[in-house]
Every structure is written in structure tokens, then in C-alpha cells.
Amino acid sequence: MKNRMKTSEKETPPLVRIRDLKTWFPVKRGLFSRTKDYVRAVDGITLAIYPGETVGLVGESGCGKTTLGRTLLGLESAHSGEMFFDGIALHAIRAKAMTPLRQRIQVIFQDPLSSLNSRMTIMDIVTEGLVRFKKISTSKADHARRLLDEVGLPPDAMHRFPHEFSGGQRQRINIARAISLRPEFIVCDEAVSALDVSVQAQVLNLLMTLQERHQLSYLFISHDLSVVSNIADRIAVMYLGRIVESGTTADIIGNPLHPYTKALISAVPVPGNNTGNNTGRRMRLQGEIPSASAPPAGCRFHPRCPEATAVCREKPPERTVTEGREIWCHLYGASDG
């Protein structure tokens, strides 16, 4: 574990670097309106992911996590900003130049069934990428056997179809497919969110084992902070299209500074912790996450923030580095940014 952590120190260049990335979706206002409105799903995100590390991306649903992941994968086009993978500018890349990168960047989604072709055998599913990139050295069955073994499935699974498996097994099949081309980077979008706890733990453990074995980097997207804290080396907390605080798991969970991070942590029911039931209340956020097409002015969190002051309603906070983490909040750093 120790040497894995080392890689996230800044001597090594990041594998993934995102700078002021914006992904907006146009929305129609009225039928005849010419002015375009946008859902600002991702609205100015800066983030680095180092080789071999897991960055956890958390936040309430609708805050833009999936859109950020999809933009990185080239499934949505960015409105502006930069994305680099191993120094290659993804934001400016041509479709043809993207092809070799598709081997190096993979994805695992939440719903394993809908992302598996129901008419293909497991063997064909897990070796599809190898066939496409002409990487079959021995036989498809050989490759399938090795991949299934890596994810803890028996070899006879290869002749069966996705619907014959449970949710946890299907996610293992997805993982086998995702690692088949020996990628360096995998976006895991709510990859364990639909699984039962006992199986969720199995799949999280598998992801960690594979990461250590193959030096993988993960962007681990989840709405569940408890899950994220168990796999992430660093955590970025997102709110309405922006990151509000990011740092090591130890700093973010052990010593959260941003009021939103504090509220998220305080909302997690912790078994065995007597702050619950009958014994008083912890910090609660009021209201709901506002619409991403009309984000509040100033700090986007201000309408729900228990510590908001006048400046929060007027000016968006600048990035500040304090106590080992990056934070976007007027309570920290110079007030003039």
C-alpha cells in the first residue's frame, strides 16, 4: 500500500490531467426562443489522477459525476477546457488518433446487464476487445479462461450468457472485459452501487486487487461516500458541476473543511456511533440541490450553506490550498482570491 501512495506525490507526472473542463448540454427554452440555455453539468473542473492511484469522485445525484466521466471517455464533447491522458490532449484529438487510446482507457458502469450484449457468450464478451485490436495470441478460449480466472469466475462461465449470472457475477464479467486490453486507466461509474453489501465488498476487493496487480488508475465515481472512502487514495467532492474540496482520503474524511463535505459526512448514518437515535441531531443540509441550468450566483452552495456570508452570495470562491487539500470556499484563503 505504501509504495502505491507514493505515486500520487507530485514527482511523477499525472496520468490524467483535467483543466477547467466544461461540458454543457443545450436545452430548449421556448419553442421560438433563439437564445440557448445550457445545463452546466460540468462547469469548470480541474483534477489530476496519478499512475496507480484511485481518485474517488463523490457528490449528490445530478451534480455532474457521470458527465465528467463520459467526457473523459469521449462519450460527451467538452464545451471548453483541457484534458490530457499521458500527455496526449484528448480535447483536441481526432477520431483516428483516439483509437489506440481506447485500449488504454476503459469504463465500468453501474448496470452490468444493460452493458452486456445478451446474445453473446461470456467468452465473446470478454475477448471482444482483443479480437478488435487483433491481440488474440493463442485462442479466444485461452484468453477468456485467463480473464475469468482474474476476476474469480470459473472457466465454464465462458460458454454461458449474461442473463444466467447474478448481479455480482455480471459485474465481474464487465471487469474482465474492461481489463482485457491491459488498460492503464478505468472510469468506474457507480460500479458497485447496485450490488448487495456482501457482494459489493467482494467486487470492491477485486477492483483493489487488480489495481495493485496491474498498476491501474481509477476514477471511482459514486454517490456513496462510505464506499468511496474504502477504495480511494484521494477524494474529490463535487457539487453542481464543480469540485468544492479535494485531498487525501485521510484529510477529506478525517478532517473535512468545506461545509458541503462536512454535511455529506454528517449525513452518513454510522452504526455503533451514538449520535443517532434519540441522542440529538447532527448537521443537516436544508433543501435540495438546485438546477444545473440556473446555478446560484457566487458560491453555488450558498443557498444551503449554514456558514454562508455576504461574499458567498456575490463571488464564486477561488481555489485555495490549505491543510494539504484544495478547497473552493470563502471561509478559507484570501478573501480576494
Binding site: 500500500m1 484511485t54 447474478s166 455480482g168 457475477q169 448487495d196 453489501v197 456482501s198 457482494v199 459489493q200 465488498a201 467482494q202 470492491l204 476487493n205 483493489m208 456513496d224 461516500l225 462510505s226 464506499v227 472512502s229 474504502n230 477504495i231 480511494a232 487514495d233 482520503t249 485521510a250 474524511i253 478525517g254 459526512i265 452518513v268 454510522v270 452504526p271
Partner: peptide
């Protein structure tokens, strides 16, 4: 006992979880 151990708890450091092998 297995279920209680398998629940991912908020933690300050990454690490393997105690899962229950197999499935329901």
C-alpha cells in the same frame, strides 16, 4: 456478523473489506 463486517464504513484509509464469499 458477516453482514456487519462487510458494510463499507466511512474510513480515513483505503483497504480491503471483509466480504462474505458467494451469493444469496
Amino acid at each position: 456478523a458477516g453482514l456487519l463486517k462487510a458494510i463499507p464504513k466511512l474510513t480515513t484509509s483505503r483497504g480491503k473489506l471483509k466480504d462474505i464469499p458467494g451469493q444469496v
